[in-house]
Write a protein that binds this DNA or RNA. Structure first.
Length: 260
DNA sequence: ATGACATATGAGATATGA
C-alpha cells in the first residue's frame, strides 16, 4: 500500500502534473496540501475517473488539503480538533482500506510560522500541540495510522543544505524542532529517516528563488509519522525529487511510503 | 541584510509562502 504526500502549491495551477504523476505512480492514498481552492472547486471528478475517492477540506486562496484513496474513505474528520475558532483548512483525516487492515490517514499542512516570534509562530506551536493531543488519542486505539503532510519543520541538520540560512526561521527554531520531537517521543516513527538514516541531502522543498533547485539548496519538511502498528508495516520510503525538474513545478515534491 | 520567484485575487498591488 503506497501512501503519498505532496504539497502541490495550487491544484489548479499544477493539475496536469499531479494527475500525470498519479497515473504513473498509482498511489493507493494521496495526501495533498495547499490545494488553494474551496471544496467545490477541487477537480474531484478527474480523480474519481482515476479511481479515487476524495475528501477535501478546502479554502479559497490559501491552504486547503485533500485526502484521496482508491476505494472508500470512512470516519472523515475535517479540521484539526482542539480549537473551534481555527478557520484555516489544514487537516483532513479518514480511514482507508487498501492494506491488510484499515489504516487511518491524515493529510496535514502545518503552519509555516514565520515571522518568528509573533502571532503566526504562536499559531504554529499551538497547532503542533493540538496535533500531539490528537496523536495521543489515536495511539490509544493501538492501530495503524499515518500522519502525512507538509510539517514545515526541518527535523535535523542533515535535512537542509544551508543551515546558516535557517537559524532564525520558524521551520528550524528550537521550539519547532522540540514540538516535532515530542511527536516522535510518543512512539511515532518518521518514515523516511527511519529507512534512510544517513541519507543527507535528501530534500522535499526547494525555493523558487535564487536558483535553489539547480544548486540543490533544499530542505526536508514533508514527512510521514507512523504509529507503531503502521511502522511495523513499513517497507519503503522514497522522495520523488524528479518532479521538481518539470516546467512550472510545485516547490515541493511527492514523498511516498509503502506499507505491507 | 534584502530580494530574487510563484500563486491567488482581481484588474493593481498586496498577502502569503519557506
Amino acid at each position: 500500500m503506497k501512501i503519498a504526500t505532496w504539497n502541490v502549491n495550487s491544484i489548479k495551477a499544477h493539475f496536469e502534473q499531479v494527475t500525470e504523476w498519479v497515473r504513473a505512480e498509482k498511489p493507493d492514498v494521496l495526501c495533498l496540501q495547499e490545494i488553494k481552492c474551496e471544496a467545490q472547486a477541487f477537480p474531484a471528478a478527474a480523480f474519481e475517473e482515476l479511481g479515487y475517492a476524495c475528501e477535501v477540506n478546502g479554502q479559497k486562496t490559501y491552504n486547503g488539503v485533500a485526502l484521496l484513496a482508491r476505494g472508500k474513505i470512512e470516519n472523515v474528520v475535517r479540521g484539526l480538533p482542539g480549537d473551534d475558532s481555527d478557520e484555516q483548512a489544514r487537516f483532513v483525516m479518514g480511514t482507508v482500506f487498501g492494506a491488510s487492515r484499515p489504516v487511518t490517514v491524515a493529510a496535514l499542512y502545518l503552519p509555516n510560522g514565520n515571522p518568528a516570534p509573533g502571532p503566526k509562530y504562536d499559531y504554529k506551536l499551538g497547532w503542533m500541540q493540538r496535533l500531539k493531543a490528537l496523536a495521543q488519542e489515536l495511539l490509544k486505539a493501538e492501530g495503524p495510522f499515518v500522519l502525512a503532510g507538509d510539517y514545515n519543520v526541518i527535523p535535523a541538520l542533515a535535512d537542509m543544505k544551508r543551515p546558516e540560512a535557517w537559524v532564525n526561521d520558524a521551520l528550524w527554531l528550537p521550539p519547532s524542532r522540540a514540538a516535532f520531537q515530542e511527536l516522535t517521543a510518543l512512539g511515532l516513527t518518521e518514515a523516511f529517516r527511519a529507512l534512510h538514516p544517513r541519507d543527507s541531502g535528501a530534500y522535499t522543498f526547494w525555493d523558487y528563488q535564487a536558483g535553489a533547485w539547480p544548486k540543490n539548496n533544499g530542505i526536508r519538511i514533508d514527512h510521514h509519522l507512523l504509529s507503531p502498528q503502521a511502522a511495523d508495516m513499513l517497507v519503503a520510503a522514497e522522495i520523488h525529487r524528479e518532479a521538481r525538474g518539470h516546467e512550472k513545478p510545485s516547490d515541493h515534491v511527492p514523498v511516498v511510503i509503502t506499507l505491507e
